Computed example of a mutant assay.
Amino acid sequence: MKSERERAYAYARKHLLMFDSEVNRTKEHLAYFANAAGYELAATFIEEIETWPAAFERLIQAVIRDRVEAVILPSMLHFAVLGDPTNIKQHFEAATGARIIAISNAVSHTLGDTVS
């Protein structure tokens, strides 16, 4: 019997002057990491500059509703606009039960060895 992969969502904040091609590369990077780390990436939430924190709020609702196990970020800096990233991470994990994984912190010499 095939075991199911844990589902994950991804979140990234678009920055000023970011081109659509950069957003697409970020999505591809998140999807690649999720797959390599053993997750099924079910959705990616992109925060637009003009509407923040709308995508973050949708992310929280979706994680709770869908009982997603993990949320993958390119780096913790994508939470910085919301406040201190460490505090946001702690509150998010406590409120949703999902683990935050920042790719910049998680990548080691052997992908998947270290996920925090």
Score class of each variant (00 low, 15 high):
1 M>N: 07
1 M>Q: 06
4 E>Y: 00
5 R>Q: 14
5 R>W: 11
6 E>H: 05
8 A>E: 00
9 Y>G: 00
10 A>N: 03
10 A>Q: 05
11 Y>I: 08
11 Y>W: 08
12 A>R: 06
19 F>L: 14
19 F>H: 11
20 D>E: 13
21 S>H: 07
21 S>A: 14
22 E>V: 11
22 E>W: 09
26 T>F: 02
33 F>W: 06
35 N>Q: 12
36 A>N: 12
36 A>P: 01
37 A>L: 04
37 A>W: 00
38 G>C: 10
39 Y>V: 05
40 E>Y: 03
42 A>M: 12
44 T>P: 09
44 T>Q: 05
44 T>H: 06
44 T>K: 01
51 T>Y: 06
53 P>H: 10
54 A>L: 04
54 A>G: 04
55 A>Q: 07
56 F>G: 08
56 F>A: 07
59 L>K: 03
59 L>D: 01
63 V>P: 00
64 I>W: 02
65 R>V: 13
66 D>N: 15
66 D>A: 06
67 R>N: 14
67 R>H: 15
67 R>S: 11
68 V>M: 01
71 V>H: 02
74 P>W: 00
74 P>R: 05
75 S>F: 01
77 L>G: 15
78 H>L: 06
80 A>M: 03
80 A>S: 06
83 G>D: 15
85 P>G: 10
86 T>I: 15
87 N>R: 09
89 K>Q: 08
89 K>P: 03
91 H>S: 12
91 H>M: 11
91 H>A: 13
92 F>W: 09
92 F>D: 08
92 F>E: 11
93 E>Y: 08
93 E>C: 04
98 A>L: 04
100 I>F: 05
100 I>T: 05
100 I>M: 10
106 A>E: 03
107 V>W: 02
107 V>Q: 02
108 S>K: 14
109 H>P: 05
110 T>A: 10
112 G>V: 04
115 V>K: 01
115 V>M: 11
116 S>H: 10
